[in-house]
Design a protein around this nucleic acid. Structure first.
Lengths: 100, 100
DNA sequence: GTCATTGTTCGTAAAATACCGAACAAATAT
DNA sequence: ATATTTGTTCGGTATTTTACGAACAATGAC
């Protein structure tokens, strides 16, 4: 087949990717926190959230990989913030597809 | 521990549940379709989408389990529609948490 | 240097997800 | 009654996700 049936759009894939990253209570909590306040340190989260620090680290990595947050070294800690560009894109896509 | 630290709210859990259901391109496609037009039959989707009908059936089941769509028997076919109540809740929650 | 702090990575295990084809059920049509 | 249509369920497999503790790096403090 030379022609490529693109039934599912790139936007839908992108949105699904963001949605997937948001699809866990802990990650949702972190996103909610970071979109409310400016930033936070993962140490703070470790104390509050009911998971091992290694597990939290994995969740943060997923949010990073999805592009929703970013971490900045502030030795010996790491400061996490929202990735504004991608967050705005996610906002736009959700808005568009949820018809909000 | 008698006291229960509820760090993660029920709303956040609910939103994560919806987001998880949206976290796959095929499910995103179906949701987008059903929120645009009124309804569709899964047979139509089977023809369009690049997955086996059994796989599609599973995806539809997940959307159903998450409460985002509902199926109505119209023998021998099944008509799928958006679950308006929960869809509205999802819209509300995304709007609130994404600050759209 | 040594110690403490912070967070990632590693190794492992259990559960969930994604996918397929085949078998099955339910209803209509012949 | 038999065949056809439609979609789910079953059995199986591969991959991904979630979770933990222990080990490891990197930095700052003493």
């Amino acid at each position: 087949m030379t022609e490529n049936k693109k039934i599912i759009t790139e936007e839908q894939k992108k949105l699904a990717r963001y949605a997937k990253a948001m699809g866990h209570p802990i990650r949702m909590y972190v996103l909610n926190l970071l979109s409310s306040q400016s930033c936070c340190y993962s140490g703070d989260l470790t104390e509050i959230l009911p998971v091992a620090k290694s597990t939290l680290s994995q969740h943060l990595k997923e949010l990073k990989d999805a592009g929703l947050i970013q971490g900045e070294t502030e030795a010996p800690r790491i400061k996490y913030c929202i990735n504004k560009t991608n967050w705005q894109e996610a906002q736009y896509l959700f808005k568009k597809y949820l018809k909000i």
